[in-house]
């Protein structure tokens, strides 16, 4: 499954990526392609560096080795201004929403427009209201971020991410810690935005069910490697017992329920005594 040539339709291609933090290898020779106009999910257990992958793609972190190209540009060879230009075409939805707490919802969504364009305020208003309408929160424009629920904050952040009409959006754990209704709303929004705006979406998540509903392709990462990839259906049918355990959420399997420890009976008995 090591691909060498980028797929014809790949917006992002990752080749032989290695990254380590301290002595811990987060990625070991990972290669993957993300297709234009599709929703690609990167899944895996917590702590496997899924968010790190997003930061590498966005150029916030530097790999030890390997190449990441976005729309034909090698992210880590760009000058600072070029990287910033590329980022204007990327939206990123952080887990916490990352709304600026000292501004209202309206000003948050207007923030990238005011920073990067010289549009008159009337046009900014129109754009902001359009983006807010797209996420269904036009009525919440006067609220401050601390008055929003977690799900609303994420939707506002989504409106802000699409403010500059990017070509792609990176979602960092969009479903974590949401109630079922917010979750359903976000699933619907990601799908709808992807098709109506012609975006390319990358979802990093460990919520198997919600992600399977909308993803076109799923990559499963564990221990620094890509274990398998394919459509959600293919993943459910996977012959790998590890993937089976991950997709069904079974408590025990190839990933043991117990943290490695010495023999249970030995541990319970007082040391040095044997009955």
């Amino acid at each position: 499954m090591e691909q060498t040539a980028p797929g014809d339709n790949a917006l992002i291609s990752v080749r032989q990526l290695s990254f380590s933090r301290g002595n811990k290898k987060i990625f070991n020779n990972v290669s993957l392609d993300i297709e234009r106009g599709k929703i690609t999910a990167i899944m895996g257990p917590s702590g496997t560096g899924k968010t790190t992958l997003l930061k590498l793609i966005a150029g916030q972190l530097y790999p030890d080795s390997g190449v990441i190209t976005v729309d034909g540009l090698n992210v880590h060879q760009l000058r600072r201004a070029e990287l910033y230009n590329l980022r204007k075409r990327m939206g990123m939805l952080f887990q916490s929403g990352a709304l600026l707490t000292d501004m209202s919802v309206y000003d948050n969504v207007a923030f990238p427009l005011r920073e990067h364009t010289h549009l008159p305020e009337s046009m900014i208003r129109t754009l902001v209201l359009m983006k807010l309408e797209a996420v269904g929160l036009r009525g919440a424009r006067h609220l401050m971020p601390n008055e929003l629920s977690g799900g609303m904050a994420r939707r506002i952040a989504l409106a802000r991410a699409i403010a500059l009409d990017p070509m792609m959006i990176l979602y960092d754990e969009p479903f974590t810690g949401q109630d079922p209704i917010s979750m359903g709303v976000l699933v619907h929004l990601i799908k709808a935005l992807n098709s109506t705006l012609g975006l390319t979406s990358i979802i990093v998540s460990h919520d198997v069910h919600e992600t399977s509903l909308i993803a076109d392709t799923i990559y499963v990462i564990s221990e620094g490697r890509i274990v398998d990839h394919g459509t959600p259906e293919a993943m459910r049918q996977s012959s790998s017992p590890w993937i089976q355990q991950f997709m069904t959420g079974a408590a025990d399997g190839p990933v043991p329920f117990h943290y490695p420890a010495k023999d249970y009976l030995d541990d319970l008995l007082p040391t040095g005594k044997r009955y």
Binding site: N85, K88, M92, E115
Partner: peptide, 22 residues
Amino acid sequence: GLMKATEQLSGMEMMAVDPIKR
């Protein structure tokens, strides 16, 4: 510090806004 902890600085960088300047 709170802006950093709540990923606001990181988010700003992702919006191509330099937090040191802004």
